[in-house]
Design a binder for these strands. Structure first.
Length: 300
DNA sequence: AACACATCCTGACTGC
DNA sequence: TGCAGTCAGGATGTGT
């Protein structure tokens, strides 16, 4: 499922292919991918036609592409199964593709999404607190953020990510630490895969109450979070179930580095005990029952 | 503010 | 073989 590394791989791909070329036409095959856009299909197409994307910016799992209409951007979220594919215009039609955008440079941006949890919309940009709104190293620093993304916290790879602030908030949380890691308004970019992997590396149980974890251990945990995300970005993301592809339709290679997620029954890479999967909060949580135990006393 | 829970959605898989 | 049921889970909205 697309998380930060997958979104970043897609963002980079888009930055290399779809910028500065006018959008000639848009074909919508399933308008449900535009349900977040207030004006619907017609409005979406008429705003974008003849316009071009200026840059590709990311915060957490959200990607947005400012357009040459002052103060507006197209916002993309891949949801559970979304893919942004860039093809030549004569490339064969692909299953589950919900929308085509034909560009003057001969390329076609395709939005594919099996489960339709992803979305595209045009949104207004507003000022951001801090030096930059998100990650877009190829372009000039973006100081504006879409309204619909402004509540999303900075991600661990953002230079302005404030670990001390996050730690402070965690001191008031009684829920399990994994719940907090998945809270995009606390820290963004982490989903089920990288939460399980980071917790495994830090030897912390997913249901360890957040406030019971020492500052030292939280620092260690977030060190692992950052490390896992960086490694996965370098590998082009995780393609666990064929749902995630880069813009060329190719898989990422991080799946071979997974130690917990999807490893149910396989030996723990540290101690050899079988990795377990537990259903928790409508999700699967993968962990080593030996290395990752809930501690009654404060976790140091 | 934090928490708990329901909702959206389709295709792959399981069991009878 | 076929059909019904279950599962996968990110974001959002509601009620407490």
């Amino acid at each position: 499922m697309p998380e930060l590394p997958e979104a970043e791989t897609v963002r980079r791909g888009l930055a290399e292919t779809v910028l500065d070329s006018p959008i000639q036409s848009i074909e919508v095959f399933d308008s449900r991918c535009l349900k977040k856009h207030p004006g619907g299909e017609q409005d979406f197409s008429s705003i974008l036609t003849g316009k071009k994307f200026l840059s590709a910016v990311r915060r957490g799992k959200f990607i947005w592409l400012p357009i040459d209409v002052e103060g507006f951007a197209m916002v993309m979220h891949l949801g559970m199964s979304g893919q942004a594919l860039v093809r030549t215009q004569d490339y064969e039609h692909e299953k589950q593709v919900r929308l085509h955008m034909n560009l003057e440079n001969g390329l076609q941006l395709r939005f594919s999404d099996q489960r339709l949890f992803g979305s595209l919309m045009i949104d207004q940009l507003g000022p951001v607190e801090g030096k930059s709104a998100g990650y877009s190293p190829e372009s000039k620093v973006s100081t504006e953020i879409p309204m619909s993304v402004s509540h999303i916290a900075r991600d661990p790879l953002d230079p302005e990510f404030d670990l001390a602030k996050v730690r402070k908030k965690l001191k008031n949380r009684t829920a399990g630490i994994k719940h907090a890691l998945l809270d995009q308004q606390l820290v963004s970019g982490i989903g089920n895969i990288y939460a399980d992997e980071s917790l495994w590396r830090a030897r912390v149980h997913f249901n360890q109450p957040a406030h019971s974890i020492s500052t030292k251990k939280l620092n260690e945990l977030f060190g692992h979070v950052t490390e896992v995300l960086e490694e996965a970005v370098a590998q082009g993301g995780t393609s666990f179930d064929e749902q995630y592809k880069n813009i060329n339709g190719q898989s990422g290679y991080f799946a071979q580095n997974l130690h917990a997620y999807g490893q149910t029954g396989k030996p723990c890479g540290r101690c050899g005990r079988a990795i377990q999967r537990q259903s928790w909060q409508n999700r699967g949580s993968h962990f080593c029952p030996s290395c990752q135990r809930i501690r009654k006393q404060k976790l140091k």
